[in-house]
Design a protein around this nucleic acid. Sequence first.
DNA 1: TTGACATAAATTGTTAACAATGCAGAACTT
DNA 2: AAGTTCTGCATTGTTAACAATTTATGTCAA
Lengths: 237, 237
Amino acid sequence: MTNEAENKLGTLRADPDEQMIVDRIYSAVMEQKLAPRTKLSELALCETFGVGRMRVRRALLLLSSQGIVDLQSNRGAYVACPSADEAREVFVARLMIETGIVRELASSIGENGVKSLRAHVEKEDVARKSDDRTEIIRLSGAFHVELARCNENSVLTRVVRELVTRTSLIVALFGTNQASTCPDDEHASIIDAIVSRDPQSAEEAIRHHLLHVQNSLDLEQTRKAEPDLVKILTGRM
Amino acid sequence: MTNEAENKLGTLRADPDEQMIVDRIYSAVMEQKLAPRTKLSELALCETFGVGRMRVRRALLLLSSQGIVDLQSNRGAYVACPSADEAREVFVARLMIETGIVRELASSIGENGVKSLRAHVEKEDVARKSDDRTEIIRLSGAFHVELARCNENSVLTRVVRELVTRTSLIVALFGTNQASTCPDDEHASIIDAIVSRDPQSAEEAIRHHLLHVQNSLDLEQTRKAEPDLVKILTGRM
DNA sequence: TTGACATAAATTGTTAACAATGCAGAACTT
DNA sequence: AAGTTCTGCATTGTTAACAATTTATGTCAA
């Protein structure tokens, strides 16, 4: 029901195969199963998904247009590797857009919206108790997409989904050992602020949350990378 | 300088041909030279741009992923035709994002930013005096992209560009005879509010402006369309 | 061993032919 | 004349072969 309009631009036009490839790669990035710089060779993807090369190339083009994949001419497709500057841009954009979203929700969210958000946090709790790391990561990001979805605005939802996915890449690259996932209670706090119809505190809650995530990163230093690794290895020999 | 980072995701990966096709169609839509529902046949595009079918199809796929083009299976590509609901979504998103942008600009815009915005409005004046309708339309939309660009955030700029372009389609579909272009002085007012470092009034200025544009539309009634025309014609015979 | 160079393999980019689908017009029926 | 079916044409979708580029391998000289 809710995602009916949302899918209009996202899925209606594309063959199931193609959308499936895009979604799978999207999900894998969100769950941090696909690390930045991972090579996505056409042949491998063809075999994995059992489709022709054309479909794979179309999917990769779509992913590249969203900044998830980096298409290098004659060299192939790689999972994108955002720079520190790009990372900052993504966070600025998320702050701006998501504060707007929760402010709006504080005055307009309905029964169903609250219910789905609560259910989502519940799922996060379950995953956390089961120590299902992959699921925790996935749900942490998905929560923000869910917030956008509650606004019933497919445009905003799509933008947020893209930004959240890119954030996964950013966390994978710049995340420090600790705190790579959202602290649980913060999501609940955001919902509480929304249901109490207080735009100001809802905005504060998500701002605090996003800054918290950003501060758990190390955007100043060099990012986790193989280039350095290569240098280290060659330096050793 | 400013658009160096901006182009990273936009152009770096693509061949000049491909980007050229996308840009040209993008511009044509922005200038309202390409009406919604216009068929974009592959052959015609191949001949127009002097490229192979592959490039054309890739360009169309990219355009469709941005909601500018509607790809219909086995039927071809058409300039998108947003529904009234989509139109409302676009305006909600623009209100949210652009108010955030000008608020930010009110506290952070630099010399160069102000200069480029003033220059832009100047260009609008020139075009208006020359009665260059196409240029007026183009610059009216481009102003909002320029605002985003002043934030030096390629992510936001890209989102705004997409939304502005879709707005062109919306205006073409739902615009009433009068006032299809932004009133000149409103752009200047926005700049004034920004340079006076007043986030609140800057936000008010752009909100007023966007609502003004939206109110000049007729989102309730049926949109301008050919389906009706077809019925009329068949009814006559 | 290291480096440069040449060759071979693998991967990506492009093209062109073919298949499938949709569309328009003609012929036919009522 | 209106509606229907059928046929041919035009357009899009797909596949496979080919071309171009990069990457890996191996050889040789220093």
